[in-house]
Design a protein around this nucleic acid. Structure first.
Lengths: 233, 233
DNA sequence: ATTTTAAGGTGTTGTTTTTACACTTATTCT
DNA sequence: AGAATAAGTGTAAAAACAACACCTTAAAAT
């Protein structure tokens, strides 16, 4: 799509820089974590920032998000949803930049850890989030808030856990999200009564007794939803 | 903010046209309605569209939304929230345009009707929505879906009603949103038990018996929220 | 003036969902 | 063998929800 077409149809209009930022959440050792980078371009080089970059004219917003996140951290195939467009005139002191924020959820494992480290990115837990550049602390707050409310009504928490997870792990995730302890019996009763978790034969042996693994069964879940089921934790 | 600054900090980056669209909802005669315009610029001139226009470099997204909506329809001071940024590369055949959609709620009355008519905009009820340009039908679907879920957990429905409204009116609004009949006694019990509606002394006399007016008391509502209350209808 | 009509307003009961709460079991470590 | 640790399990009381029918008010019609 060239300049000709642009001027033909929308003369006297001003173009603007468009960026995307990806707020990447991970869950590890009972802690919710955020992926941050030290920015390496001016202005604000060296300061902590949420991964981001500029959208090219020939790519969609989500494509740009995936490309930029891959460039900056090596991560790919994450669950990603658009969150909000940040458009205050002076939000970026370098230029007028509108940024579309996405939040992403990732199953943290050795491979992703390695990739993140090689790119000099860092997992920071929520009690230790530093001052971030521009409006990135706002983005982070909004994303966290959004994740909290959304996880209650959509089964997106499973994107933060490995394929095979235990019920105590799942409960710890929800406790981390809601910042509130949950009753073990009531939690298990509720989750299992929904009927889309498959109990596996093997156990996670990191505790003495060991806890059975479960798996999220998307086929069953979709079937239930099509019958009017509403997820809620 | 000039070109100098831009080139100093972010060289080799491509700027893009940024638009906003406002999905404006109204509620009248028991019907949820959408404000639409016939587009008067190319491409797709003469086709039905959601009101929209381009963002200037010196205004925020929301400011642009209010300015454009005011230009196109004369409306002002609406409740407005950002919804989603639409960024597919070919969504607008005229150029690469990213559009940030807002949804807006308005208390329809004689004054707003007049203003809308003078600008040749139209209130269309949901059963009669025509084919819209570009991805505007998607925007509308998303906005409606969003309104429905959001109205359940946030007291935003009151933005669609006059300051003084009756309980039968409020119930009709929720019935229109959920497309489902509600039990009069249970609805009244639930809404009134929340304790943020003030009953007024006068009645709406458009029915034989007349129904008492109520008013949403924001101070009481905020107080309840600060004590941990969660709105849900 | 009386009757009719249309919509507003009101409580109770059974069912379902949610919450609170304590002991047993499996396994590892010593 | 025994101690330690976390996993796993059931019940009862309380709260929320859903279903349901009649009386009241006031305008309109006769």
């Amino acid at each position: 799509m060239g300049e000709d077409k642009l001027h033909k149809y929308y003369p006297h209009t001003e173009k603007i820089l468009v960026a995307v930022n990806c707020i990447v959440f991970g869950f590890e050792a009972g802690q919710l974590k955020l992926l941050l980078l030290k920015r390496n371009i001016e202005p604000a080089s060296g300061k902590w920032a949420i991964p981001g970059g500029f959208v090219n004219v020939d790519e969609s917003l989500k494509t740009a998000g995936r490309r930029i996140l891959n460039d900056l951290t090596g991560l790919e195939d994450l669950y990603m949803e658009q969150l909000h467009a940040y458009g205050d005139v002076d939000r970026d002191p370098g230029a007028r930049v509108i940024s579309v924020a996405f939040y992403a959820l990732i199953k943290v494992n050795e491979y992703t850890h390695q990739s993140v480290e090689e790119h000099d990115a860092h997992w920071i837990q929520f009690s230790d989030i530093p001052d971030l550049i521009f409006d990135h602390n706002d983005m982070m707050d909004n994303a966290l808030q959004h994740l909290r409310t959304r996880a209650r009504y959509q089964p997106i928490g499973f994107h933060l856990l490995p394929e095979k997870f235990t019920l105590p792990e799942l409960q710890k995730l929800y406790e981390a999200l809601y910042q509130k302890e949950l009753d073990k019996r009531n939690f298990r009763k509720k989750i299992l009564s929904m009927g889309f978790l498959d109990k596996l034969d093997d156990k996670d042996k990191s505790s003495r007794r060991g806890a059975f693994y479960y798996r999220f069964n998307k086929v069953k879940y979709d079937e239930l939803v099509s019958k009017g089921f509403n997820f809620e934790v």
